[in-house]
Simulated scan of single mutants.
Amino acid sequence: MRRQKRVAQYRQEFAQISATNPLQLSRAEQLMVELSEKPCATPPVWGEMYRAAVKLWHPDVGGDQQVFKLLVRAYQVVQVGEGASSIP
């Protein structure tokens, strides 16, 4: 039941992301921690957190498609925040 509630919250959050309401870096970082369900290292290792989250949220392993898309967007935002190339 708790996971279903989280999925509903994440789906709602994903639906609100748009060009005029982008995902902020601070929230993207929070999402990476929440979705990976791993304690945050100092400094955070976003690639490891992303891979852990993919194992939990990818639709092919029983995850939710919209939550997975939110994860991908959060990872893109974090990468840009760290100086990687811009989001397509």
Rank of each mutant, 00 (worst) to 15 (best):
Q65I: 15
V77L: 01
V45G: 02
D60E: 11
W57N: 11
Y10G: 01
R6K: 10
A84H: 06
P44L: 09
A52V: 07
E29Y: 04
V80K: 01
A19C: 01
H58E: 12
F68M: 08
D60G: 07
V45L: 09
E37K: 13
C40T: 14
K5N: 05
F68V: 10
Q9R: 10
Y50W: 09
V61D: 00
P43M: 08
S86C: 02
M49D: 06
V54F: 05
D60K: 11
V80N: 00
V72N: 01
V33G: 04
T42A: 09
Y75D: 08
L31H: 08
H58L: 09
K55R: 14
S36R: 07
G47R: 13
Q65C: 04
S26M: 04
P44A: 12
L31T: 13
Q79D: 06
Q76P: 01
Q79M: 12
V7A: 03
L23P: 03
A52R: 11
V67K: 00
E29C: 08
V78T: 05
G62H: 00
S36V: 03
A19Q: 14
E13G: 01
Q30M: 12
F14K: 14
G83N: 07
A53P: 04
Q76R: 06
R73P: 01
S26P: 01
E48I: 15
P22C: 03
G63P: 02
E34F: 04
L31I: 15
V78E: 02
S86E: 05
N21A: 13
P22W: 03
L56C: 04
Q79T: 05
E34K: 07
P44W: 03
Q24M: 11
Y75A: 07
I17F: 09
Y75R: 05
E34A: 12
P22F: 06
M49K: 11
E48P: 00
E29D: 12
Q16F: 09
V7S: 06
P39E: 14
Q76N: 08
V45E: 10
V33W: 06
F68C: 07
E82Y: 00
Q24K: 13
K69S: 10
V78S: 02
M49A: 14
I17Q: 11
A52T: 11
M49T: 08
K5F: 03
E13D: 09
G47N: 11
Q4G: 13
Q65F: 05
R6H: 09
E37Y: 09
Q79G: 06
V80Q: 01
A15G: 10
K55A: 15
H58A: 15
K5I: 05
P88T: 00
A53E: 04
R2L: 12
P43I: 04
S85T: 00
T42M: 09
L56M: 08
Q24W: 02
V45P: 01
Q65W: 01
Q66M: 05
W46L: 05
L70Y: 00
R73E: 13
T20Y: 06
R3A: 11
